[in-house]
C-alpha cells in the first residue's frame, strides 16, 4: 500500500536526542480511514453544537488522554499545527506520542498555538490567552481540545446559534467558574474567538465561537 503517511513522522530529532519510544502507545490502526471517520464526527460535532457525538473505535492514548481526545489529536494535528499542552498532560510519554504520530510542534506560549490540549480544565488559562484570530483573518484562531470529567451534570447553559435548530442544553462538568462568563466575551467578539471541542470518554461536543450560551 502506498500511503503518504510518512509525512506524519517527524523528520528531525529534538536536541534532547529524538523521540523516546519506550511505552509508546499505538496511533490509529488504519490512519487513512480512521482519521476520515473521526474527522466526520468532529465536523458533525462542530456543525451541530451542543450535541454529543460518539467516536467508536477511538484509540487508547497515553495518560491522561481519553480516547476521544486522542482521536481528535491524531486526526487534526500535524507539522503545520502548533500545539500547546497544559501542565498536567505535559509528560514525556505524551510528548513522545504526539511527536511520533503527529509530528506537531509543541509550543510554550498558548498565544502561538493553533491547537490547545487541556486535560485539567479547572486550572486552564483564560480563553483570551489563546490566539483569537484577527479582523481580516478570523480563521487564525485557536481550537481547543478540552477534556472534561463529564459532559453532563455540570451547571447547565442554553446554547443557540448556527447549527442549532431552536436551542440546546449543555452541562459539562469540571469547568472553572469563570468559563461561561469568558464564553460570553468570546462569542461577543465574533467573528474573533476560540472554538472548543469538549471531549470525555469516547464522546465529543463541539462549541464554535458563533454560539451564544445563556446561563
Amino acid at each position: 500500500m502506498t500511503i503518504a503517511y510518512g509525512l506524519a513522522v517527524p523528520r528531525t530529532s529534538e536536541s534532547s536526542g529524538g523521540i523516546d519510544t519506550t511505552d509508546l502507545r499505538p496511533g490509529l490502526g488504519d490512519p487513512v480511514h480512521d482519521s476520515q471517520r473521526f474527522f466526520r464526527k468532529l465536523l458533525s460535532a462542530m456543525a451541530q453544537p451542543g450535541r454529543p457525538v460518539e467516536l467508536p473505535g477511538a484509540p487508547e492514548g497515553p495518560v491522561p488522554l481519553d480516547p476521544a481526545t486522542a482521536a481528535a489529536a491524531l486526526t487534526l494535528l500535524d507539522l503545520d499545527a502548533p500545539l500547546w499542552i497544559d501542565w498536567i498532560a505535559d509528560t514525556p510519554q505524551l510528548r513522545a506520542y504526539l511527536k511520533f504520530h503527529c509530528g506537531c510542534p509543541i509550543v510554550e506560549r498558548s498565544q502561538t498555538a493553533a491547537f490547545g490540549l487541556i486535560t485539567d480544565p479547572e486550572h486552564m488559562p483564560r480563553l483570551a490567552l489563546f490566539a483569537q484570530g484577527s479582523d481580516q483573518y478570523p480563521d487564525r484562531a485557536a481550537s481547543l481540545l478540552l477534556q472534561v470529567p463529564s459532559l453532563e451534570g455540570g451547571p447547565a447553559v442554553t446554547l443557540s446559534g448556527p447549527g442549532i435548530r431552536d436551542s440546546a442544553v449543555f452541562a459539562p462538568d469540571g469547568l472553572p467558574d469563570w468559563f461561561w462568563n469568558d464564553w460570553r466575551l468570546n462569542a461577543g467578539q465574533f467573528p474573533l474567538g476560540v472554538d472548543v471541542f469538549f471531549t470525555c470518554g469516547d464522546r465529543v461536543v463541539g462549541l464554535p465561537r458563533s454560539i451564544l450560551a445563556e446561563g
Binding site: 503518504a4 486526526t75 487534526l76 503545520d80 493553533a114 480563521d139 481550537s143 467573528p191 472554538d195 458563533s210
Partner: peptide, 21 residues
C-alpha cells in the same frame, strides 16, 4: 495525500465556526 486532507479538514472546521467567512 493525508497531509493535504488534514490541512483542508482544519480549514473546513474553521469555515463552519465562522459561517460565510
Amino acid at each position: 495525500d493525508e497531509q493535504t486532507k488534514r490541512m483542508i479538514r482544519r480549514c473546513i472546521l474553521k469555515a463552519v465556526a465562522v459561517p460565510g467567512y
